[in-house]
Computed example of a mutant assay.
Amino acid sequence: MKKEQIKGSLSLFLAAIIWGAAFVAQSVGMDYVGPFTFNCVRTLIGGIVLIPCIAFLNRGKVRKKTNFTEKKRLLLGGICCGVALATGSTLQQFGIMYTTVGKAGFITAFYIIIVPILGLFLGKKCGLSVWISVVIALAGLYFLCITDGFSIGKGDIYVFLGAIAFSIHILVIDYFTQFNDGVKMSCIQFFVCGILCFVPMMLFEHPEISMILLAWKPILYAGVMSCGVAYTLQIVGQKNMNPTVASLILSLESVTSVIAGFLVLHQNLSQRELIGCGLMFIAIVLAQLPQKI
């Protein structure tokens, strides 16, 4: 079991690195295409990539016939997740147009704290450490987002709203994975997200194939690595892992985004912003620590 847990930890750590670096791909991709176009193409690629992943993960398993209720539940879960994912990823993509990769990564990671707060409306109680982490995270957001004159950047607002949407996405996944295969549901959600982004893409952005081809590197990375590979690594990695430990490892995505933004895009954070990042990371870790009930 210990060997399996080590493999699981490595899988989750790799997923966090891939997701953190994906913020760079999202930023670079915006130089060629609009946010709806980027999300549409990458999520459709992600859905296509997961098809062989599903076959690989189900190899050697005895095929069971699924009844109409199970299929309906799987489809419903995929649609609900797809709507939440489309909302969150679109808001995040718009936000990245107006803020740095590092700030976007840390503000997005705020979902780890938003989730237990939203859980209150579902009858799930929060421990003292969660509320302390909320206060610390708010202080971190102040240092990270609020500039001179108490103004918050437009990009920061978009990314924060995206974090709320991702929180809802996580809760929806938590509910539907009780009944459905996680990878299959993810495959459906990517296709739903791609279709939902396709309509505004055609209405507002009028994408050109030539521009999409110019952005093939960031789109392919975001589609294959971020959507397809990283999500599969998360599913496989969490199989024999304590969920609290898994969440802590995945929260390193925010740290990776800052490092990637610095190394690739040369986006430096000010001392004030670094303090904000540090406070938010402390809050993220504190929110995931085991709580006594």
Rank of each mutant, 00 (worst) to 15 (best):
K64E: 15
G77L: 01
N242K: 11
T232I: 11
V224M: 07
S210L: 13
I293F: 11
A86G: 06
K124Y: 13
E70R: 07
V159H: 05
V285S: 02
C53K: 02
N242Q: 11
I164D: 00
F36D: 00
Q234C: 08
I259T: 05
G278Q: 04
V49W: 09
G29C: 05
I249H: 03
Q26N: 12
L269V: 11
C40D: 09
T244S: 14
L14H: 00
D181I: 12
S9V: 05
M1S: 12
K292N: 10
K61I: 08
N67H: 10
G77D: 03
I96W: 08
T69D: 15
Y158F: 15
W19F: 11
T244V: 15
T66K: 15
M201S: 11
L274D: 00
V115Y: 06
L214S: 13
T147L: 10
E208I: 12
A283D: 06
H169E: 10
V115G: 00
S210M: 14
G223N: 05
S251V: 11
L138Q: 03
G237M: 03
I235F: 04
L263A: 13
K71Q: 13
F204A: 09
K7N: 14
L286M: 13
L74S: 10
V135K: 10
C277Q: 03
G149T: 05
T256H: 10
F121V: 08
I79Q: 05
A137T: 01
L144V: 09
F110E: 03
V83G: 06
K124E: 14
I275S: 00
F110Q: 11
I51R: 04
M30V: 10
I170E: 02
G140L: 07
C126G: 07
C40K: 03
F281E: 00
Y111F: 15
F36M: 08
C80Y: 07
V28R: 00
I219F: 09
I275A: 09
K154P: 05
G276S: 07
T90W: 12
T69N: 15
I284P: 03
Q189H: 10
L161A: 10
Y142S: 08
L250M: 12
M241Y: 02
I259A: 07
F94L: 04
M201Y: 06
A55T: 07
R63V: 15
S89L: 05
K292Q: 12
V258F: 02
T256L: 09
Y98R: 10
L214W: 08
E4R: 14
I275W: 01
T99H: 05
V115H: 01
G102V: 04
I79E: 05
C227W: 04
A222S: 14
A22N: 12
K125D: 09
S226N: 12
G123Q: 02
V224L: 12
S270M: 07
G46T: 06
I146Q: 08
P218G: 05
V258K: 01
C193S: 13
A55F: 15
M241H: 02
M1E: 11
A139M: 13
M185G: 11
R63C: 06
A22G: 11
M202G: 01
Q288K: 12
Y231P: 02
P52H: 04
I136H: 06
L269C: 07
M201C: 14
